[in-house]
Nucleic acid binder design. Sequence first.
RNA 1: GGGGUCGUAGUUCAGUUGGUUAGAACGCUGCCCUGUCACGGCAGAGGCCGCGGGUUCGAGUCCCGUCGACCCCGCCA
Length: 588
Amino acid sequence: MAEQLGSLARTHTCGALRASDVDARAVLLGWVQKVRDLGQIVFLDMRDRHGITQVIVQDDADLLEKAKRLRSEFVVGIEGVVERRDPETVNTKLPTGEVEVRAATIRVLNEAKTPPFIIGDEQAVSEETRLKYRYLDLRRPALQQNIVLRHRITMALRKYFDEQGFLDVETPILTKSTPEGARDFLVPSRVHPGEFYALPQSPQLFKQILMIAGMDRYVQIARCFRDEALRADRQLEFTQVDIEMSYATPELVFEIVEGALAAAFTEIGVTISRPFRRMGYAEAMAVYGSDKPDLRFDLKIQDVGAHFAESPFGIFREAIEHGGTVRGFVIPGAGGASRREVDEIVELAKQAGAAGLIWARRTADGVQVSAKAIGEPTTAAVLDAMGAGAGDLVVLACGAADATSKMLGQLRLTVAKKRDLIPADRWELLWVTEFPLFEWNADQQRWDSLHHPFTSPREEDLPRLASDPGSVRARAYDVVLNGWELGGGSIRIHDRETQATVFRLLGLSDEQAKLRFGFFLEALEYGTPPHGGLALGLDRIVAMLAGESSIREVIPFPKTTQAVDLMSDAPSTVDVAQLRELRIRTEA
RNA sequence: GGGGUCGUAGUUCAGUUGGUUAGAACGCUGCCCUGUCACGGCAGAGGCCGCGGGUUCGAGUCCCGUCGACCCCGCCA
């Protein structure tokens, strides 16, 4: 039977007591982590989020009997005196290990069922079980540390942006649907039957309007919603550190954002070097096959098409004749790989979408290549050109330049992981710049924004905006850490005319543009300062700094890849009366 | 929408070529134990082998379907 807290007021957390507290009276409130019943002595480990303190129960028969009835995860209050432990009984693994509390009072504030997994244990538990009992998982030290780190990073960022003159402004959660980009989450309006709000995919237009409104520098830790497939680094709802600045240049944004990330890294005791490296989109794609390259390891993609223009190996020669290329990279130390290991790499390439993968390496008496038709002289020349040494393996693929690099970029990542080529504890931050403004949408026969329709073209490319849209580069930039896109942004269009031109290129008629963005286009006409900004993925930043490979580990209540909250069982059906009130009829 | 990995006790896992009564560790329950902290000792309980169908004399094991978790592609202005 549960007892009342009564007059028990906490004097110390379970992580607080030290040798300097000896002889003090202490009241601890927390969970029983473990009971060690030795008969005439009972030890209790008391736990809260601050730590663990050992309590000793001895001599008092009533108290002993009560202590023996305690079980893991009972919530108890202990009142007693702090005692120094004998030197031989000190527990050096605990910060509180020099002392223990000799219990005079034990109050059972609540009992607990046996939990499905042990809270104070490092043993792995399936994510399914952890998500169902998230309140228990959150009690475990690993997740508690992540939540604490998230808090500290959030606080550091708020402090930093405040110091830089940013104003924290809230924007609506119930807003207007703008069907470009990701699928919207819609919220039916009861007052306006048949009409819907949308949850924001980002506060993009609102933050730009805040610049028009004269807020000058804006920051918001903003929840965003996108109804798209979930991944280790993507949830339906996620948190952006959203910023926007009037009179911004890319350099100014870089400086501000680098400072913010430096502040975040300080929370894990890491000093990052600034300014970050810069890389054009074209180089990133060509050399790393990705717009978010992981620079912790090399395996750089090289173009060796020149060696195959007249090759007797038809597949490569024809690829070049059709305007394609031959590219590949060196896998250091894989030269001695067994046939099975090499086949495995070829198989990985197929999974990445390669039609085929040719490999080559040096042997004791020359060179070896998986396509004999290439011939030894060409093979040797390619190995030389790529800088492949005795112990290395070279892999080659052909096709359209972009597709080949992308495929090799994927292979690069899986090979690096599999062969353990990625150094731990390295932080490779970079800016990817000079993105194209548009990409051609073959299905719809029109241009799509690569970033979003409010991104400003580079001034020197402006003359080609109407004549050659594909060649126009954007004033957009992504910040990348170890192969994760941490954030992205741009300098925005701030004049009505350029904005209208871009909408037309995107296939939006003036009427459609007015319907969707009319309020914004009108706002642009009332004296809009040049402005720009960026949004950082807070979940990704925290996950990275926590050393986690999934953002679910830094989100208190995440959803599964099937978009289900296993704890609350959302989504769920609702009462017909609710639907009727909203004038909604379901099909199923 | 597509590809892959996994699903056996509360938990994490093992389970041979298809063969008698499905095991281990931790956890849990009871008893013993005055310095434990991965306490120890003794005894015990605990299984729809995800679910449905099929093949077979016989299925945890083979086949088909389905559900769920995770990873990847597509998707994510």
